[in-house]
Nucleic acid binder design. Structure first.
Lengths: 364, 364
DNA sequence: CTGAAAGCGCTTACAG
DNA sequence: CTGAAAGCGCTTACAG
């Protein structure tokens, strides 16, 4: 019935036109119309069956289901997306997928999305405002259902565009400027304050801080907590910038050891920088915890593996990811209008690297 | 690059040239028609300008560009997708995104995709055939451009469906049954053979193998290499199943120590199981490398961090990911019909855990 | 080079 | 409950 002119879009797809006698490739180039014809109903009814509309007669449901099976028909989601003006996918925009902190977050988000029948579009921005803009614009053009965003540029116009399109945005780890977005962040200030106070309590005075990139909210918050604790103790802060990454942290730590050789303790702003710092310390012949005490933010799976195991401040990543997804789904379900902001606390896990009396977890 | 209209390398990521005018005329509900009217041209011309068609008069280009900026118009990709019968996205289906091996691979793939203006749809199967089926069907329905697949079920019908739709599939890490798919795998057999021979060369005789799930191709290949090396040395293999995951590996190692207490060396089948084994060894009071020598497959970033640093067989993940993307793009560019299979070798990196004389990398 | 027109394959008011 | 029809917003032969 629906004659397809040669060279139509079907042809472009490289689909073989049905050859008489030859076994037709199942489900290719079929539309609801074909199923409808086969089942002796209208395309609308096929659509209703596929969408689980409860109003369709049982007999029709059966006939349509049978026809779909016989034909091997599979719905073209592209058409559905256009018609509904949404692709059922959630954008997840992180600054560095290789950072275990975000890997864990992505994993938890994937779980939650899959359970609800949505897909995840993974975007990695490398902390570049330009990549963030490109990805968010794409997500807007594609009419994503919602976006979980670790903002590289919290003030980006693209964030506004998404919100304008009624696409909910949940800021993760750092907040964004637009007040309409939800957010899920952790109390980095409290974390470094706790870390610093823990080291102060152990008698350290010359405590340095290895922080992230200036201007990044998370970095600033963590720096602030350290500075407060030091100031309250009447001590001078000593800081180095490790850019939240391994290599810069390695270099910054080496430089710090050169510059402030008398430092006895280090607060490290995230797990990636801890790796860099550990390497630099080893290279410099400083042994943990005696030559240098160390407390790190984040609790990656390898923190217990190193010798001595790392004393850390752990954030509840999984719960945070779940919270972000929950906030998103509340919006999708129109169950909420006003923005919500959730703050999560860190947990101090004392292990060996801070020099506190505590048996390593590994010795039986 | 035949199928993509002229444009900058990364410029076509859906980055429609809407300028962030401060007065934000929300580009909602605007269509090309509106832009066309404003610019005094046809919608077709607007489309051509947006797609970088070189045939449009310079003056029209200017007028259209201006109209787009004034209106704050942004293209609806949903319509474009339907019309072109493809969403410009690549599905990437892995068994465990939290495994650093796959994280690295995903990262490299994202890089390559972004450079070419494509997006990545991340799917995590947890080694479940059902999740693989659900994701691949979705990818087919959404007319993904192509799929990189770490198969949980290499014989799944959904793989055939994708190929039937002319959606190229590149099997990664393990091959799939359908002969039309490309593949990028590493020589796991050679890797465990090398590992075992290295330990044999160091004088070990009672060498055990901690392997992955029975039936998974990668696991079987790695097991085979170990068994061959043992057999050739006239020794009896001793094996444990750690399911490629941390916890099962921990349990399996504990059981192994119980059962075969006299084992002096361990070949571990992947990086996740190495973590489990390390924990079990520590718990059992066995020190590396004296009480137990260890060689692991994979070279995650933490392998150098543990004490002693791990002797490993590293696979060139980044190159493998690049190869997979290259194979995919060759298909998209219609530059190849016949399937291609690429095999990558491992590199032995002798560090401390095998007991071989070698200075740790960290001591200055 | 440009425009008018067809159509991608669904979904969904609307009418019966 | 069901079908005919409109239409989502693009792209692209086709004709001029």
């Amino acid at each position: 019935m629906p004659e397809r002119p040669a060279g139509s879009a079907t042809g472009d797809l490289g689909l073989d036109p049905a050859q008489p006698g030859a076994e037709a490739p199942r489900g290719l180039g079929l539309s609801m119309r074909d199923v409808a014809t086969r089942a002796g109903v209208s395309a609308a009814t096929v659509s209703r069956v596929l969408n689980g509309s409860s109003t369709v007669q049982a007999e029709y449901v059966e006939r349509v289901t049978a026809a779909i099976a016989e034909l091997g028909y599979r719905r073209n989601r592209l058409a559905r997306n256009l018609r509904r003006q949404t692709a059922e996918m959630i954008g997840i925009v992180v600054s560095d997928i290789e950072n275990p902190h975000f890997t864990q977050m992505v994993r938890a988000a994937e779980d939650a999305a899959y359970r609800r029948g949505y897909r995840l579009l993974l975007c990695n921005t490398d902390e570049e405002a330009e990549k963030q803009a490109a990805y968010l614009e794409m997500l807007a053009g594609e009419r994503a259902l919602g976006v979980i965003l670790v903002p590289s540029n919290p003030a980006g116009d693209e964030i506004r565009w998404l919100l304008d399109l009624d696409i909910p945005v949940v800021a993760f780890d750092r907040s964004v400027e637009d007040p309409r977005a939800d957010s899920v962040v952790s109390d980095g200030e409290g974390a470094t304050r706790t870390a610093t106070e823990h080291l102060l309590g152990a008698g350290h005075r010359r405590i340095a801080f290895l922080g992230g990139r200036t201007g990044v909210e998370t970095a600033e918050r963590r720096r602030a907590g350290y500075e407060q604790a030091m100031r309250e103790a009447g001590l001078a802060p000593r800081e180095a910038d490790g850019d939240f990454r391994i290599e810069p942290a390695f270099a910054a730590t080496q430089e710090l050891l050169q510059r402030d050789g008398d430092v006895t303790a280090l607060v490290v702003g995230n797990n990636l920088m801890a790796i860099g710092a550990l390497r630099a310390l080893a290279r410099g012949g400083r042994r943990l915890p005696d030559d240098m005490a160390l407390v790190a933010i984040d609790d990656p799976f390898w923190a217990e593996l190193v010798e001595p195991p790392l004393t850390v401040l752990a954030q509840p990543v999984r719960e945070m990811a779940d919270a972000a997804m929950r906030l998103l789904f509340e919006r999708l379900g129109q169950r909420r209008e006003e923005p919500r902001h959730e703050l999560f606390g860190f947990e101090l896990k004392v292990r060996g690297s801070c020099g506190a009396a505590h048996p390593g977890p590994a010795r039986g």
